[in-house]
Design a protein around this nucleic acid. Sequence first.
DNA 1: CTCCCGTATGTGCACGGTCACATCCGCACT
DNA 2: AGTGCGGATGTGACCGTGCACATACGGGAG
Lengths: 339, 339
Amino acid sequence: MADSIDRGRAPNIRDVARLAGVSHQTVSRVLNNHSSIRESTKQRVLDVMSELQYRPNRAARALVTSHSRTIGVLASQRSHYGPSSIIQSIETAAQDAGYFVTTANITKADEDSIVTALDHLNAQAIEGLVIIAPQVRVLRAISNLDLRVPFVTMHTTGGDDDHAVAVDQVAGARLATRHLIGLGHRNIYHLAGPQDWIEAEARMHGFLQEMNAQDVPTTAPILGDWSAEFGYYAGRELMRVRDFTAIFSSNDQMALGLMHAIRDAGQDVPHDVSIVGFDDIPEAAHFWPPLTTVRQDFPELGRRCVAQLLGTMGKSTEGYTGRIQPELIVRASTGAPSF
Amino acid sequence: MADSIDRGRAPNIRDVARLAGVSHQTVSRVLNNHSSIRESTKQRVLDVMSELQYRPNRAARALVTSHSRTIGVLASQRSHYGPSSIIQSIETAAQDAGYFVTTANITKADEDSIVTALDHLNAQAIEGLVIIAPQVRVLRAISNLDLRVPFVTMHTTGGDDDHAVAVDQVAGARLATRHLIGLGHRNIYHLAGPQDWIEAEARMHGFLQEMNAQDVPTTAPILGDWSAEFGYYAGRELMRVRDFTAIFSSNDQMALGLMHAIRDAGQDVPHDVSIVGFDDIPEAAHFWPPLTTVRQDFPELGRRCVAQLLGTMGKSTEGYTGRIQPELIVRASTGAPSF
DNA sequence: CTCCCGTATGTGCACGGTCACATCCGCACT
DNA sequence: AGTGCGGATGTGACCGTGCACATACGGGAG
C-alpha cells in the first residue's frame, strides 16, 4: 500500500486529510469548527477522525498559537480543607471551559521557593494564574516579579483590586463577633491565623471592627498557625487565666483544639466558654459540641476565579463585582455567658 | 539594526545562537547539557541566555520529542484529607524530578465522566498517570481503555500487580481490630466505606480476617460513604440496638460522627463504646475523646508513586516492592469494655 | 606524510498544527 | 457578457526545538 495509514505513530491532520480526500487545512477548519465548511465535508472528515482515533496534538497547537489553554495554580498548604476545596472547584470550572490546570506548591514560603514555583508554572506557558497562597510575602514576591499573565488572588487588600476574587472575610468575622456580643459576651478573645496570611489579617480586622463598633473592649489577638495542635496549646495557656467567656477562632481546626483544652481543664463549652470557628468544614457539625462557625462558599469561589480569569483573558469584561458573602452557622458551641 | 533582538516575541534558540555567534544546534546542546561542548562556548551561550531572559519553549520541545514531562493525576473526592495529601506529595515529588502535574477530577464516577477525565489528561500528552480514585468501577473503566501510558494505582487487588503502590490497608485494619479484641471486646461492629472503593473493601477484609483468626463472631459490616454525617446517622441507628461494645470505623470522619451519635444517646466513649478510626487526620488527636486510629504515611505514598512512575518510564526498574506499613495510634477513644 | 578517529560544531529537516493568502466556482447584478 | 462577491477549499510558510548527518580540526599511529 502506498499510502499506508499506520506509520507507527499517532495519526496527524494530514493523515486524516488524505483519507477524507481533502486538504489538511480543511481538516484544521473542521477541528476549530470554522463556519464555511460544507456539512457533508465536515461529516466525512469527522468520520475519518473517529475511525483513525485521531487526537489533535496539543503541543503542536500550542506551538503555533502560543496558547496553552492551561491555568496555573500556585498553592500552599493544599492538604487543608479550604485550599483543596478551592482547587477542586477551579479544576472543575476550568475543565468545563476546556482549560487545563497545573499546580505548583510552595512549601517553605520563602522568596526562593516562590520563584521556583512560578518558574515551574511559567515553563508551562500558563495563560492565567490563580494564587491560593494568600500570604503577604507571596503577594509581595509576585508583584515584584510582574507576571506577564493575568492572575487572580483570594485576598482583599481592601481597595480597588482588580485581581481579587474573595469571600468577604471581614464581614464573616463581624458576623461571628456580633453573634457573641449579642449573646451577652463582653470578654472575648480572638485566636487569629498566622499574621502574614491575608485572610487571617482580614478576620482579625473584622473582629476588631465589630468590637469597636459595639464599644466592647478588646485584648490583643493571639497569633496561631491554623492547626488544631496550636489551638490546643493556646487553649491550655488561656485556661490558666480564665478572664474571658468566649473565643472567636480564625478557623475550625484551631477551634477544635481550643475545645479540647477547655474540656481538659474541666470546663464546659458553651456553659463556661463559647467558641466560634470559621470555614464550616464538614466535620464541624459533629465536633463536641457541634461548632458554631462561618461558612464560606468554596465552590462558588473557585468558579468565580476561573470566570474572572477567562473573562480577563478573553473579551468579556463582565467580571463579578462584589465579594461572596459568608454565612453564620449557629450550633451548640455558643450560648449566653454564665456569671 | 538589521538583526534587532526584540521582534515583539519571546527570544528563541536562534536568537541566542546569533548573539552568541554559534549555531542554534550548539545552543540546543547547551540546553540539554550535551558532553562535547567546550566550556568557553557553553559559558558564552549561557550568558546570552540570561541576558535575553531566554526560556525554552516547552510546546516546541514537546512537539519534537513527543515528551511532555507531565504526569496526570486522576482523582476524586480531592477535598478529602487523604487524597489531597497524596496529591500534594505527588506534586512535590514530581516537581523535584522536573515533571509537571495536571489533574482531572471525577465527580460523578460514572463511566462517562471517567472517560471525559481521561480524555482531558490524554489531551495533555501525559507520560504517566496516577490514579487516586480507588473505586472499583474506575479501575474497570481504565482497564477497558488500555491506556498507552504507564500508570500506578493505590489499590491492592491482592496479587502481583505491578501498578500498585499502596499502604497495606488489610494490615492496618487488622491492627485496629486486634487492638479492640486485645482489650477484651467481643461484640465489634465495622462501619465500612462505600463498597466500590477498593480501600474500603481492603479494610473490611482486614477486619473480617482478624476477627476470624481470633475466633470472634462477626456481624455484617455497615456500608457508609466516608462522611461524618453518615457516621452520625449510622450511630443513631446502632444506638437503638446496643448489642456491641466497640466499632471500627473505616475512616476518621465517620468515627467522629459515630462518637457524636453515641454521646447524643447519653453514652460515653470509651466507657460504653470504644471507637477506632482510620487515617489519623490532624484533627483526630483533638476529637473528644481523642481518637485511636491507624496512621497512613501519605507523603511517602506520593513519593513512591512518582518514583515508580519515573522508574517505569525511564530505565531503572528498581521499583519499591512491599507496601507501606500503617501504624496504630492509640488514644483515649478505646478502652476495655465495661460489663 | 597519510590515514583514521574523536572532538566540537554546523546544516537541513521533521514534528503537527494554524495562518495568510490564493484559487475556484456559482450566482446576482449591471 | 462582463463584473463583483462571497462561500468552500487548497497551498505554502512558519512556530521553536531536537535529531541525523555532515563538516572542520587536531593529534597520534603506521
